[in-house]
Simulated scan of single mutants.
Amino acid sequence: MSPHKKTKRRIAFSSLADYPVVGSGKDGKVYRLSQDKCIKVYYDETTQQQELEALELGQVSSIVPILYESGHNYTVMEYIHAISLSKYIKEYNRLPSALVERILLLFDEMKAIGFTRWDAEVRHILITDETELKVIDLKRSLTSTKSIPTKLFQGLRKLGALPLFLRRVQTLRPDLYKEWVRYQ
């Protein structure tokens, strides 16, 4: 994969008024630029730099969106055609063992990439049409040290899916279950 284009530009939110907002949070807004690209514009450049570092490190893996361009307060990356894990659980009211296994492999991959935080919120784990998992909002992946997926647990608890998730982990990865069960 070729390195992304780095610029010294800053993007004004107002310059993206004609593009649909596909995500918004405390760190910034995400706009869809095309069928396969989006731009995240950050409120704070420090947050942009933290996430950019994680995105750059993650370019070796298919779980991280492809990075195309970055500037002082933005990143242009792959638009993921997917449903979040939270929406999946709400819509289908299920958490199949195969999906739990892919979530565990996602965390293994985060560790292999070199991330120090092996956790993600249920809304930041995306399930593609090909049932691959992607992870977004990586700003704390290198600044936080967390081997217990407490954010995932919190989201699954709110959805009523944590007990089922842990039962599946117990079957699939008893080693992780023994480590994680005390944090439920």
Rank of each mutant, 00 (worst) to 15 (best):
E69K: 12
K37S: 12
R182T: 13
Y177D: 00
L16E: 07
K87Y: 09
L105N: 11
P174A: 01
D137L: 06
F165D: 05
R182A: 13
S14M: 08
K5T: 14
V181E: 15
E101M: 05
S147D: 14
Y177G: 02
Y74G: 05
K139D: 12
S141N: 10
V100C: 09
K26H: 05
V30G: 10
E45Q: 04
R9W: 00
L152W: 13
A98L: 04
I66P: 01
R94F: 05
Y68S: 05
Y177A: 00
Y88A: 06
P3S: 11
G114F: 04
P174Q: 04
V60H: 08
T7D: 13
S2D: 09
L142Q: 10
S84M: 07
K146R: 14
L106N: 04
Y19C: 14
G23H: 11
G28L: 06
M77G: 12
I89M: 02
Y19H: 13
K8F: 11
S70M: 09
H124L: 04
V21A: 03
L172S: 00
L105I: 15
L57Y: 00
A17N: 12
K87M: 15
L176F: 05
E101T: 06
R10F: 13
K29R: 13
Y79I: 09
Y43W: 14
K29N: 03
E78K: 07
D129Y: 12
Y177P: 01
V41Q: 07
D175L: 02
N93L: 08
W180Y: 15
I11E: 14
K111W: 11
L133S: 08
I89Y: 04
S34L: 14
F153G: 12
F165T: 10
I63P: 11
V122L: 05
F115G: 03
T128H: 13
L33I: 15
H4G: 09
T143E: 07
R173I: 00
V64L: 11
P65D: 00
D36N: 15
S14F: 08
R140W: 09
H124G: 03
K8V: 15
S62G: 04
T75Y: 01
Y177I: 00
D27W: 14
Q170M: 12
G25L: 11
V60A: 13
T7P: 07
F115D: 05
D129T: 11
K111G: 07
Y74S: 03
C38I: 14
